[in-house]
Design a protein around this nucleic acid. Structure first.
Length: 423
RNA sequence: GGAGAGAUGCCGGAGUGGUUGAACGGGACGGUCUCGAAAACCGUUGUGCGGGCAACUGUACCGAGGGUUCGAAUCCCUCUCUCUCCGCCA
């Protein structure tokens, strides 16, 4: 969430930036500020009263020690008077704190100045487009036909076992998934990322930390018996690894990578977008996460974008990089670049990675800090990106690399897959 | 799942109602010494919120949440987690 002190000191700037994100309820900012003023006033009252009680209690202790019972009793009646108002003020203060916080989490992150205004994906800025157009055979078909032809992914089986959107990978398809995961992880660790295998279910505090809660619980699968959420992305457990920690400045940057399955309810999705592997409820993804010094986070973002770009290039896919407009970016992000690969037979761009800088929006929720030169705790910045999401990469690879003889496996994957061609 | 024990600062570990934000030890950091280092010695070593230009100061925090009391790390209740034993089990 945004920092209260920042909102207080930059009321107009905050509103102006929120408008870029098409955030409608700008009055919320004023409401928060006035509520916070009330909160501070109340705290002052509360603290002063508590101070009096504490002082009197100490005196009582000393009087008792000296055996001056009567004087002590007299003090007690004095304290009793303070206590009457103190309970009420303390409750009031707690309520105000709660109210301020409840409103504060409703504010999305401020978009960086690089974020273009806009409402829909059409307003995203195409930053770069590269890679050769795939050369397809005349009888090229989309990946949902190819997976049947080679019997590598079975959706009907997933429906039987679980429901729609839970694909079953089989044989060479399963092996190819494993090859992709291993390749992505190796590529990330070679760049200095530490590999993790986190839990795939998280508690409420964790889901809150990265911004999935409150209000967005509808996107996650929920296990009421234990109050756990299935992770929608590795970002959630991995970023929370350092929740409530105060790091040394020299610990930064912290780079982490993890493969996890991701679970998304995707309520309301329908149509051509969900065909085949384009959108599913369970999919595999390798994620990269960084915690960095606030002065360096945009440098890190560029570095991560370059990192993902090389990975996409190495697979020989045609791709483009988009800078998301205010209306298309996520609640928690300050700046996001999406990667899309060209899926030759569908003739469609498929999003395969999203790389974002959250500045201190997430770290403020998670209280991930470091001590600066002066020894003062300061919020770190958090970033993450997919490196990469598998299903759409698989879809593009299948479609773009189809030949009469089978699916050509990209060179970088061959050591992992164990063959040059999938037949 | 059953029984028992426990949860204190960066770590270990005291503390069972009063001036304790917390003894002691270790670690880390700074200094003295040294050509340099080690050792030794001296010192520093919390976080949030509020007030203050600042020095500083008020308050809260000893797993979490309630309660008792003039006063709670210390007593009571609830919850969570950890450990040990038994059962079950990949």
């Amino acid at each position: 969430m945004l920092q209260l002190a920042f909102i207080r000191q930059n009321r107009d700037l905050v509103k102006e930036r929120l408008a870029v994100k098409n955030f409608a309820d700008l009055d919320l900012v004023d409401e928060i500020i006035s509520l916070d003023e009330k909160r501070r006033k109340t705290q002052l009252e509360n603290d002063e009263l508590a101070s009096k009680v504490n002082a009197a209690s100490k005196e009582i202790g000393m009087l008792m020690g000296k055996g001056e019972k009567e004087a002590a009793e007299q003090k007690k009646t004095e304290v009793a008077q303070y206590k009457e108002s103190s309970k009420q003020i303390a409750d009031e203060l707690a309520a105000l704190e709660q109210q301020v916080n409840d409103l504060l989490v409703k504010l999305p992150n401020l978009p960086s100045t690089l974020v273009p205004a806009g409402k829909t994906p059409e307003d995203n800025v195409n930053v770069k487009e590269a890679g050769a157009d795939p050369v397809l055979p005349a009888n090229a078909v989309p990946h949902w036909d190819l997976i049947k032809q080679y019997d590598i992914v079975n959706f009907e089986l997933g429906v039987k076992i679980t429901g729609s959107g839970f694909p079953v990978y089989k044989g060479k398809g399963a092996k190819l998934q494993r090859a992709l995961i291993s390749y992505f992880l190796d590529y990330n660790t070679a760049a200095g990322y530490t590999e993790y295998i986190p839990p795939y279910m998280v508690n409420e505090a964790t889901a809150y930390g990265t911004g999935q809660l409150p209000d967005k619980e509808g996107q996650m699968y929920y296990m009421p018996a234990d109050n756990f959420y299935m992770i929608p992305t590795a970002e959630v457990p991995v970023t929370n690894i350092y929740r409530d920690d105060i790091l040394k400045e020299t610990d930064l940057p912290i780079k982490m990578t993890a493969y996890t399955p991701c679970f998304r309810r995707e309520a309301g999705s329908f149509g051509a977008d969900v065909r085949g592997l384009n959108r599913v409820h369970q999919f595999d993804k390798v994620e990269i996460v960084q915690l960095v010094h606030p002065d360096k986070s945009y440098e890190s973002l560029d570095e991560m974008v370059a990192h993902v770009e090389k990975l996409v290039q190495s697979l020989g896919l045609k791709y483009r990089i988009l800078r998301l407009c205010g209306g298309d970016m996520s609640f928690t992000s300050a700046l996001t670049y999406d990667f899309e690969v060209w899926s030759g037979a569908q003739k469609k761009w498929l999003e395969c990675s999203s790389v974002s800088n959250f500045e201190n929006y997430q770290t403020n929720r998670m209280k991930i800090r470091f001590k600066d030169e002066k020894g003062k705790p300061q919020l770190a910045h958090s970033l993450n990106g997919s490196s990469l999401a598998l299903p759409r990469i698989l879809a593009a690879l299948l479609e773009n690399n189809q030949t009469e003889n089978g699916i050509v496996i990209p060179e970088v994957l061959r050591p992992y897959y164990g063959a040059d061609i999938l037949q």
